[in-house]
Amino acid sequence: MEMRKGLRRLTAVLSLITMAILMTGCSDKVIVLNPKGAIGKQQLDLMIISTALCLVVIVPVLILTFYIVWKYRHQPDRKAKYDPNWEHSTKLETIWWSIPIVIIVILAAITVKYTYLLEPSKPLEHEAKPLVIQVTSLDWKWLFQYPEQGIATVNYIQFPANVPIRFELTSDAPMNSFWIPQLGGQIYTMSGMAMKLNLIADEPGSYLGMGANFSGREFGKMQFTAEATSQEQFDAWVQGIKGSSPALTKEGYEQLAIPGVSEVESFSSIPAGLFQQIVTKYGGHNHGSGSGEGATEHHHGSDSGEADATDKAPAMDMNMDMGDGASMNHEGHMNHE
């Protein structure tokens, strides 16, 4: 009796929650499900495909669970069969080893395909030339440099919609993670390395940007706005900053890097090579020089696959040699020397 009441209560709660999900799912607030850029949209496709594949198994299992628990509950005049010694059936077990294997094989194939397709350092195919924004996570603020425009901002970025954006990311503080959910997934910002993330906004709008990885006391304040506008508005904005904002000097950067929170700021010029200096500052770092060179290279606008290879290498071969002994690392070192 108790059980039946409980089950009904649980079903009620579950259906309420499902309704809540469906209702909020339609609203704009669930930003990951409401992407505004090509990358975010493909990632959403992948989420939907993988969820659907999982539900193919999960839903029958849940139904089966409730059915079996209900049907085989102990009661005085039960009609269902009781077979205490039934413990094995090759046929059944083959079935349920195969079902998850099949699902996982399908999912794995899709995942591998998308992993290469959506590799964040891969340039987007687009007729427009990408805009470069150099991102530095500081204690507890974001510095954005526009090397081609020669301006910089703090905790705010603006860029034209329908133009690919090539983010180059590093950190001058504990690791953080750069995330604009409506444009696409995040990537870590790490000292001594220049990571790359290619995103695009399909339509103008104001998007939430987050520092996603915990980095200390005021980590919660590391949020920023990413504004996608028309090309004209973007150009006007750049001109506005050039005309009215102060310059960012080396000393100004040192000031900015002191731990603390910051308002939105803008600078009309940036010291030459600041981003590369931040990356190479941790120069003795494992493979640091490799990534430093990578960063310099694409600063000159190089999009070649080679540049990609050099600065993807650091994190990659490190992961590999964690997995397996000496030889790997040695090769890694050779590459860099």
Binding site: G284, N286, D321, M322, G325, A326
Partner: peptide, 13 residues
């Protein structure tokens, strides 16, 4: 040993 191999060569000048 793994950490040694990873850090090998990182003499920071």
């Amino acid at each position: 040993f793994a950490t040694y191999v990873v850090l090998n060569g990182n003499t920071a000048g």
